[in-house]
Simulated assay, not measured.
Amino acid sequence: MKIAGIHHVAIICSDYDRSKKFYVETLGFSIIAETFRTERNSYKLDLQVGENAQIELFSFPNPPQRFSRPEACGLRHLAFKVDDVEQSINYLKSQGVETEDIRIDELTGKKFAFFKDPDNLPLEIYES
């Protein structure tokens, strides 16, 4: 087997409209498809991330909270590649999104910073 890349990342949100607005309007991802699945009372929003990746944003009635700490077992965070971390932080702050301070990756020397989506999912912007 040869894996060619990451196709998508699936996210379950607690408030579909709020998360859709965040990922589409604030982060600027384009909508590929939006489907309401009546039998599940659930939306599935397919979003284009860059040229080769997608986010599947799901809504389900009353999803359970995920136990999370920075070093908990499981998915730690989702990182997005950006050209300019400072410019990206300024934009996020102008949209009312709180960000952490810029850090430097001790292994690559690249700048990065964390912020959260409406459900407190840890997201990262990482200098390309």
Rank of each mutant, 00 (worst) to 15 (best):
N62I: 08
L78Y: 06
V85N: 01
L57D: 00
D84E: 09
H77L: 04
I104P: 06
Q65C: 07
F60K: 13
L107A: 14
S128P: 07
I125R: 00
F36G: 09
E124K: 01
F114P: 00
I102K: 05
C13V: 12
Q54M: 13
I6P: 04
R76E: 08
N52Y: 11
S88E: 09
K21N: 12
R37H: 15
V82K: 06
S88D: 06
D15M: 04
K21F: 12
K81I: 08
V82S: 06
Y126C: 04
F29R: 04
E127A: 06
D15G: 05
K93D: 01
P61H: 07
R18S: 08
G109W: 10
D17Y: 11
N52H: 14
L78R: 04
G109M: 09
Q87I: 10
E124A: 03
K2T: 12
Q65L: 14
E56P: 04
P122C: 07
S88A: 13
Y126I: 02
L45I: 06
I89L: 11
D117K: 00
H7Y: 12
Q87S: 13
G28T: 07
D46L: 13
L45N: 02
E127P: 05
L57I: 06
F112I: 05
R69P: 00
N90D: 12
E34L: 09
K111R: 15
F60C: 07
M1K: 13
H7I: 11
I89N: 03
K21H: 12
A113F: 01
F36P: 05
S19P: 03
V85W: 02
